[in-house]
Simulated scan of single mutants.
Amino acid sequence: MSAGPAILVVEDEPLISMMLEDFLDALGYRLAGAVDDVSEALRHVEAGGFDAALLDVNLRDGETSWPIADALSQRGHPFVLATGGGNDAVPERHAGVPVLSKPYTLDGVREAFETLLSN
């Protein structure tokens, strides 16, 4: 297990979530939690215990990660938005947040978190 920054992952596809966990481990980050819906993610945000988060913009059942992004912003937690494109328009209030395009690559995840955590 790595001793690097702890990352909360919000991703509704189990295989993609497992791949992200492997990427984070390879990059020296720790997985603080992997959740797949807004309510569970908000519980993690409230509890804290992580350094940054990765939010898939569109979750199952039509949920979006905007309530999670808002809660993270209010608490000063940095996060990366992950999007597959299409109509995943980022609201103005989160315009400065790094965006990671899907499909995920190890280099893309590395660049997104290096940018996020260096600020």
Rank of each mutant, 00 (worst) to 15 (best):
D56E: 12
D56M: 05
V57W: 03
V57C: 02
V57E: 03
N58D: 10
N58C: 09
N58Y: 10
L59P: 02
L59M: 09
L59S: 11
R60H: 08
R60N: 11
R60D: 10
G62H: 08
G62W: 08
E63I: 04
E63F: 02
E63N: 06
T64R: 10
S65C: 15
S65N: 09
S65V: 14
S65W: 06
W66N: 09
W66L: 09
W66T: 11
W66M: 10
W66F: 14
P67E: 14
P67V: 14
I68W: 09
I68N: 08
I68V: 15
I68E: 08
A69M: 05
A69S: 02
A69Q: 02
D70L: 11
D70E: 15
D70G: 09
A71V: 01
L72R: 05
L72P: 00
S73T: 14
S73H: 13
S73G: 14
R75S: 07
R75F: 08
G76Y: 03
G76T: 03
G76C: 02
H77A: 15
H77Q: 15
P78H: 14
P78L: 14
P78E: 15
F79R: 01
V80W: 05
V80Y: 03
V80K: 07
V80S: 09
L81R: 02
L81W: 00
L81M: 07
A82L: 05
A82G: 12
T83S: 15
T83R: 03
G84A: 13
G84H: 05
G84M: 06
G84C: 07
G84F: 04
G85Q: 05
G86M: 02
G86F: 03
G86V: 01
G86S: 03
G86E: 05
N87M: 06
N87Y: 06
N87F: 05
D88H: 01
A89R: 08
A89P: 00
A89N: 07
A89Y: 07
V90Y: 00
V90I: 13
P91K: 11
P91E: 11
E92F: 13
E92Y: 13
H94R: 10
H94V: 13
H94F: 14
A95I: 10
G96D: 12
G96I: 01
G96T: 07
